[in-house]
């Protein structure tokens, strides 16, 4: 299964506005994407389009997370989402 590791760039971590932006972007992808903290078992990965799951993930600024997806367009979807995670949305 294609996967990517990304570092959370937002200073407040994956909460509030950054979480909303990411969940919305994940929901817009043609494939289902999961998210987990790096090192967590793959079967504990959560739906990346769920803002409530993202908030309970507890990913802080600098945390490494694993994104996974399968099917047509999975690679493009993952690349797009890594980009979102590695942008500091608070700096905009």
């Amino acid at each position: 299964m294609p996967e990517r590791i990304a570092t959370v760039a937002s200073r407040v971590g994956l909460h509030a506005r950054p979480a909303a932006i990411f969940a919305e972007a994940a929901g817009d992808q043609p494939v289902e994407v999961t998210i987990a903290l790096e090192g967590a078992p793959a079967d504990e990965a959560m739906d990346a389009s769920s803002i409530l799951s993202l908030m309970s993930l507890g990913a802080e600024h600098g945390s490494k997370v694993v994104l996974r997806a399968e099917g047509d367009g999975a690679d493009a979807a993952l690349d797009a989402l890594v980009q979102v995670l590695e942008t500091d949305h608070d700096a905009e």
């Binding site: 509030a16 506005r17 979480a19 909303a20 969940a23 919305e24 959560m46 739906d47 389009s49 769920s50 803002i51 409530l52 799951s53």
Partner: peptide, 16 residues
């Protein structure tokens, strides 16, 4: 607006 956008996402949250 930012609070409302986050709340809007929660309303149809897949996990919920």
């Amino acid at each position: 607006a930012e609070v409302l956008q986050a709340t809007a996402l929660m309303a149809a949250d897949p996990m919920l």
